[in-house]
Write a protein that binds this DNA or RNA. Structure first.
Length: 566
RNA sequence: UGGGGCGUCGCCAAGCGGUAAGGCAUCGGCCUUUGGAGCCGACAUUCGUAGGUUCGAAUCCUACCGCCCCAGCCA
């Protein structure tokens, strides 16, 4: 398991500080954490932060991390989500070993503990309807009122609760509530609901139960059962911590876990909300949970992001308690940095322009040796066929080049990467004046890409031999949301969706070796960006996804120019 | 206006009484057979504000200001 990237293991944060101190001062013998997803959707980048934290801490301190599904609400949960979550955590690079658990494994024990509370006079069955409970709860500034059913006898409560379990009552007709303090400033203490009636089939327990524990009643006790020492969750659960502790203190649980909260991840141009992601999928704004534009782990995987980049990112952003919004550029940097080191370089032309080399022998071809990865000599070289007719990128040519355009133009000589120097002599156009072909000559002495006379050239272009190239579809991706803060300023988030988040190019040519690239491997199209094969590919129809562009100084210049003239 | 949190560079984030790490972004320069990568340099006299304690404060105290979370039988 490659969990110890430099960035994550060297960094410290308040959670790691607490764990280190607890270990050092003997409060615990070994650390136990858990990642507790509810299987009601797919995991996203925000979850990755939590996964890296929980598994990372366990790995670094020689403890263990459990994967526990918080499956206490059967109306929203599905087996599909359980399966995808397991696959995503594994993909991220973490291993829970034998420690796969489900809150539903503890339903019987939780039920016993509910009985315990009733016997102690610390819980009661309430007949109030949901809206009445809300009314009785009071407001943020006014205390609540006690339910008329609050003082039932333990016997009556026991009888009613058993009958709730037996299925005698309808959904919503009664709940079990902890009896704490209706006047507490902390609303979680105003007799929180502990069990509700839900006649619903559960993905794991089927129809064995029709009452289900609430999050507050299930979570801490599950931690206690598993011997979790540090129960790490996000900030919105801070107010629940006193309740978490109340249950632990009032129940005969086998261990004393503690809860710690950190700030959840927010990313610019991105929405990390299961509710919104579910809507994007259900209302077909995207093609599915694994659409390459989705911030889900399955989405970024399909997009070509390496798990290592995701982990490095988690290490870079740190863990703290202050609300924050991380710029996506940081994630993109982490991904590019891994890919620059590992991705094989290949040639592909996305918007082809024909080049004919007049002085190159007709009908012949030769193999050029091309470096696979200049960052990694051990990646070796490959042979790429070269011939008289080639495709180059349309925007690598300009008939009347502006000041800082270094690429090909009439009369100008450039290098074809790892091949020859060529000079453009003639621009061929159709009746409408569109450039359809460039007539060029090459310098046979410049084979490999340098001239014996030491002649310099200002640009290097990528190319593909027309006779050998393989056709492909290439899907370009950009931020799903055009605004850095979707939905800010009172706008509807969905109005901030980027209409150009996906651009499909159907007329691309890639070098022959790409016909056999396996799904899941991300490579670099030289000078263009990182790409991977999409699972939509078939043996005779290649489809590539653009993972990320390369940083592009020329594009930036152009953008600035456009801004200045606008 | 109840309760709980948080405020250090454009964005993350170290710092835990001894005189502001690092990363991303940005801007220069070098180098380059990817306008990629790499390299070098610049980038907070100041830590929400105002007072106080101290030889010394981002770190301690007080007050104020701002932002976030909580009124699901969701998690």
């Amino acid at each position: 398991m490659d969990n110890d990237t430099a960035s994550s293991s060297e960094r410290s944060d308040f959670v790691r500080d607490i764990v280190a101190a607890d270990l050092r001062e003997g409060r615990i013998d070994s650390v136990v954490t858990r990642f507790p997803p509810e299987p009601n959707g797919y995991l996203h980048i925000g979850h990755a932060k939590s996964i890296c934290l929980n598994f990372g801490v366990a790995n670094e301190f020689g403890g263990r991390c459990h994967l526990r599904f918080d499956d206490t609400n059967p109306v929203k949960e599905e087996q599909e989500y359980i399966d995808s979550i397991e696959a995503d955590v594994r993909w991220l690079g973490f291993d829970w070993g034998e420690h796969l658990y489900f809150a539903s494994d503890y339903f019987e024990q939780l039920y016993e503990w509910a009985l315990h509370l009733i016997r102690e006079g610390k819980a009661y069955v309430d007949d109030l309807a949901a809206d009445e409970i809300r009314e009785y709860r009071g407001t943020l500034t006014e205390p609540g009122r006690e339910s008329p059913w609050r003082e039932r006898s333990a016997e009556e409560n026991l009888d009613l609760f058993e009958r709730m379990r037996a299925g005698e009552f309808e959904n919503g007709s009664r709940v079990l509530r902890a009896k704490i303090d209706m006047a507490s400033g902390n609303i979680n203490f105003r007799d929180p609901v502990v069990y509700r009636i839900l006649h619903s089939t559960h993905p794991r327990t089927g129809d064995a139960w029709c009452i289900y524990p609430s999050y507050d009643f299930a979570h801490g006790q599950s931690d206690a059962i598993e011997g979790v020492t540090h129960s790490v969750c996000t900030l919105e659960f801070q107010d629940h911590r006193p309740l978490y502790e109340w249950f632990i203190a009032n129940l005969p649980v086998p261990s004393q876990p503690h809860q710690y909260e950190f700030a959840r991840l927010n990313l610019t141009h991105t929405v990390l909300s299961k509710r919104v992601l579910l809507r994007l999928v259900k209302e077909a704004y995207v093609r599915g949970w694994d659409d390459p534009r989705m911030p889900t782990l399955s989405g970024i995987r399909r997009r070509g992001f390496p798990a290592e980049g995701m982990r490095d990112f988690a290490g870079m952003i740190g863990v703290a308690r202050a609300d924050s919004v991380v710029e996506v550029e940081m994630l993109e940097h982490a991904v590019r940095s891994v890919l620059n080191r590992t991705a094989l370089r290949r040639f592909a032309v996305l918007d082809p322009l024909k080049v004919v080399i007049d002085n190159y022998p007709e009908g012949s071809s030769e193999d050029m040796e091309v470096t696979n990865n200049p960052e990694d000599p051990s990646a070796g070289t490959r042979q790429v066929p070269f011939s008289r007719e080639l495709w180059i990128e349309r925007d690598d040519f300009m008939e009347t080049p502006p000041k800082k355009f270094f690429r090909l133009s009439p009369g100008r000589e450039v290098r074809l990467r790892s091949a020859y120097f060529i000079t453009c002599n003639e621009v061929v156009k159709d009746e409408e004046g569109n450039i359809v072909e460039l007539r060029c000559t090459y310098d046979p002495e410049s084979r490999g890409g340098s001239s014996p006379d030491g002649r310099k050239v200002k640009a290097t272009l990528h190319w593909v031999s027309a006779a050998h190239a393989v056709p492909a579809e290439v899907r370009l991706y950009d931020h799903l949301f055009a605004s850095p803060f979707p939905g800010s300023g009172g706008r509807d988030m969905f109005d901030d969706l980027n209409p150009d988040s996906e651009t499909i190019l159907g007329n691309c040519w890639v070098e022959p070796s790409l016909a056999r690239l396996p799904i899941g491997e991300t490579i670099q199209f030289e000078r263009l960006g990182y790409f991977c094969v999409d699972p939509d590919s078939t043996s005779d129809a290649l489809v590539f996804n653009r993972t990320l562009t390369l940083k592009d100084a020329w594009a930036k210049l152009q953008a600035q120019g456009r801004q200045n003239t606008a």
